[in-house]
Amino acid sequence: MKIKEKIIELVLKFFASITILTTVGIIVVLLFESIAFFKSVSILDFLTDTQWTPLYSEKHFGILALVSGTFLTAAIAIAVALPIGLTIAIYLNMYAPKSFRKVLKPFLEILAAIPTVVYGFFALTIVTPFLQTIYPDLETFNSLSAGIVMGIMIIPFISSLSEDALHAVPKSLKLASFGMGATRFQTAFKVMVPAASSGIIVSIILAISRAIGETMIVAIAAGQQPQLTLDPTVPVQTITSYIVQVSMGDAPQGSIEYKTIFAAGLTLFLFTFILNSISFYIKKKYQEKYE
């Protein structure tokens, strides 16, 4: 009996440890192939070259060309999602009747449940043609359309998590502000948002992290031309869509093309790891504050 209990505990512990093995696996795989990559390409070139052309005969390995595309689309997405998401969060928390909020929140969360390949299709076949009617010079593949659609996808991340944070602010603060004659708008921006700032910041960081790791929307709608540009109307390539491009072809193991996707992946992993760690740290601190 005692032994059976012990075995069960060990098995469960092993299951939990698989998550650690996963992280170790990710780091080992990325590092292993990246080290091989950096044996043929200098880190200095990787970080300073402004062109990324591993698939051409004249090869350049400047990751900046992919990083700029990644951050350009993510920045457009956040520019869409942050004002809309935060306004929705404040509206749901301060203005909407409770019954309204109960219905609307899950409804908005559907936006996050739609497979990203569907969003990519939406961006390419509906949003881009629509934007072209306003701005005819917009190219078929561009970061604007991909960024906007990505922004729509991450609205619920910001609106839901920020609403949770606003909800966690003690109600007495809201009442105190109302009691002084403040409007809901004043109460929201002078009391509630500052008091919930850590939770709101966490939601924004997670949204950024999500945006830079997003793959299918950019792979379908943003194009495949790595270039160092801030122009949202031209095709760009992100780290993720480059990995997709190479994977769709057939890069043989051991070739430099094969290794590039791990070096690019490592770069992406580092960005999201830093963002996730910051948000985890803020979340821990903030939990202590209210407990």
Partner: peptide
Amino acid sequence: SLLEINISNLAGVPSIIYGLLGLGIFVR
């Protein structure tokens, strides 16, 4: 607590990175 931090971090790893993990470990 390591498990906890780790799981929270894994939840934020982009899905395409899992693809690279699968490629490196399972496929190859």
